[in-house]
């Protein structure tokens, strides 16, 4: 095929073969498509925008080292799984004296939100995070993955290692609990 030996400039100005260019483009598309969701997810764990960016950059860096055909069929779940592990690693390094379960969620309530966020949004997110703190950590995690990120039970299972049936039960009972805690006028 002609494409294999053709060389040309990529959008970022590099001279590359088609295979290299196609891989770079794939990476660009992955970044474009998932960066926002991953930053939001990392924020719920590390609660700091710059750290969340570090975590997400590290996640994409790991994607660079993966063969495309090994991850492209479950890219979203793979990215969230790596992002979660990188974020938890960061917390471990930061607070190595605390237990993981303690550090994992202790900063989740909205302290590190950016100044350019609307006050109303901050307030609402902080209130929700406070409510979520009343749930066990695995339940909190599946609820964030389901309702913030819109992931399926199968993807959540791949990320957290929990079984689909268990995820269904955690979400069901979590919703029941949250229904009683959420203020009536919040919608």
């Amino acid at each position: 095929m002609p494409e294999k030996s053709a060389t040309y400039l990529t959008v970022t100005g590099h001279r590359a073969s088609t295979a290299e260019s196609s891989r770079t483009r794939w990476l660009e598309m992955a970044i474009q498509q998932h960066q926002s969701a991953l930053i939001a997810y990392a924020m719920t764990i590390v609660n700091d925008f710059t750290t969340a960016q570090d975590v997400v950059q590290d996640t994409f860096l790991r994607l660079c080292g993966q063969p495309q055909n090994r991850v492209e069929n479950h890219l979203r779940a793979w990215l969230f799984k790596v992002c979660r592990n990188r974020a938890l690693d960061h917390l471990r390094r930061e607070k190595d004296t605390d237990t993981l379960q303690h550090t994992q969620w202790k900063k989740i309530a909205g302290h590190g939100l950016q100044p350019d966020e609307s006050a109303q949004h901050n307030e609402r997110l902080a209130a929700m995070m406070n409510i979520l703190r009343s749930l066990p950590e695995n339940q909190r995690e599946v609820i964030i993955l389901k309702f913030q990120q819109g992931l399926s039970y199968r993807e959540i299972s791949e990320i957290t290692g929990l079984k689909s049936g268990n995820i269904g039960f955690l979400i069901h009972s979590g919703l029941k609990h949250l229904r009683d805690l959420l203020p009536a006028d919040q919608s």
């Binding site: 990476l27 660009e28 924020m43 960016q53 950059q57 660079c64 997110l125 964030i144 309702f147 919608s187």
Partner: peptide, 22 residues
């Protein structure tokens, strides 16, 4: 209610970070 509370604003990596990655 949960979805609207957990909504996140559109955030991007800085262009410098993206360039480093590429």
């Amino acid at each position: 209610k949960i979805r609207s509370s957990l909504e996140f604003p559109d955030r991007s990596l800085s262009p410098k970070r993206v360039q480093e990655l590429l």
